[in-house]
């Protein structure tokens, strides 16, 4: 079991802050480096406090370091694509292509195939998209890329709904969450229980070389996972939770806090797996009830009305408890 982000037991700030002046340069996070790639640079049109903009830069900067800048990114349609590349400006500072909503994994496969044919396997390929482009419309291409074990790292920035089109339900929308197509009306407001799919586990079932989950709240873990992913050839998948202030109805300044609580409550298990077997989990450091996570988000406001839906909150807590048992998230 590896708990790499915490190998250096640091005192003043632990290894949880972005930087640490007391560490050697190479032990600091990529984001602490003034020479980081800034793969996604300033001037993009993401909302204030956008988790996806943050997650994308975290992941791609880490990949840029891991590949010494020899990298190509393929982007699915979605917020990330729209806010980064409206003509005549792009915020990307890497070779980047956007094709369609549902084909990013296949386009990435094509890029990887071309690079292989040209003998340029030093150049690595990353596919990326939101949860819609990954778990829904892009899922067939993703699964195909996985089963062929194409040399692609696919990163899903999961904000749990179709945000680009104005917050509609996706296969990654959690139960009880309000979206514009699962509205907070009727006897069971919000998204239904018992639906949705867990793509990290589906990826794991493909027995690809590497699968991991991460959040924007734990940079060191996220960077480690990107770095680790780059040590493998073949299909790899990282699923990053990126809160969306607009869609989740959370404060722009709370993006990281919300992601942290998702993990610390057990609702979002953070783990990694190699060849279909879980090899590591990031334990919960300060366990919180799911209520602390839910309360920060307008999409769950209907659970805290008068009277509060303690029954629904209990069901969500049960989901967290199951994750905690299943992945052993508590020491």
């Amino acid at each position: 079991m590896t708990v790499p982000a915490q190998q250096i037991k640091f005192y003043q700030t632990g290894s949880f802050a972005v930087g640490n002046r007391l560490l050697d340069l190479e032990d600091r996070s990529v984001q602490a480096d003034t020479d980081r790639a800034n793969a996604l640079t300033s001037g993009h049109r993401a909302c204030q406090g956008c988790g996806e903009a943050l997650g994308a830069r975290y992941a791609l900067d880490a990949a840029m370091r891991a590949t010494q800048g020899q990298m190509v990114a393929v982007n699915a349609t979605g917020c990330l694509e729209v806010f980064s590349t409206p003509y005549p400006q792009t915020s990307w500072q890497i070779p980047w292509i956007h094709s369609l909503f549902g084909n990013a994994p296949a386009v990435a496969t094509g890029v990887a195939a071309a690079l292989k044919a040209k003998g340029r396997t030093d150049v690595r390929v990353i596919g990326q998209g939101g949860d819609g482009g990954t778990v829904d419309i892009g899922f067939a291409c993703l699964s195909g890329m996985f089963e062929r074990n194409d040399d692609v790292l696919f990163i899903c920035y999961d904000n749990e709904a179709y945000m680009n089109t104005g917050v509609q339900r996706s296969g990654a929308t959690p139960p009880a969450a309000r979206t514009m197509t699962t509205q907070a009306v009727g006897p069971e407001p919000g998204n239904a229980f018992g639906q949705g799919k867990n793509v990290p586990l589906i990826a794991l079932a493909h027995e690809i070389p590497y699968v991991a989950t991460a959040t924007v709240a734990e940079l060191h873990d996220l960077e480690y996972k990107v770095r680790r992913a780059m040590e493998f050839r073949g299909a790899r998948y990282i699923h990053v939770m990126v809160p969306c202030p607009l869609g989740w109805g959370s404060a722009a300044c709370d993006t990281i806090r919300v992601a942290r609580l998702a993990k610390e409550s057990g609702l979002f298990p953070v783990f990694e797996a190699e060849d279909g077997e879980v090899t590591g989990v990031v334990k919960i450091r300060r366990q919180v009830p799911v209520e602390e996570y839910l309360r920060l988000q307008g999409r769950y406001a209907h659970l805290f009305g008068d009277p509060p839906r303690t029954d629904v909150i209990a069901r969500i807590q049960a989901m967290a408890d199951r994750n905690i048992r299943r992945f052993g998230l508590v020491e």
């Binding site: 369609l100 990435a108 094509g110 195939a113 071309a114 690079l115 067939a140 195909g144």
Partner: peptide, 27 residues
Amino acid sequence: PCEFVNVESEFAAMSVAIGASAAGART
């Protein structure tokens, strides 16, 4: 050198072609 990719659909076939062509390969 040629990479022959057995894709999962025609949608993927054309998508692979897009990626490969954008990466400079004759596709």
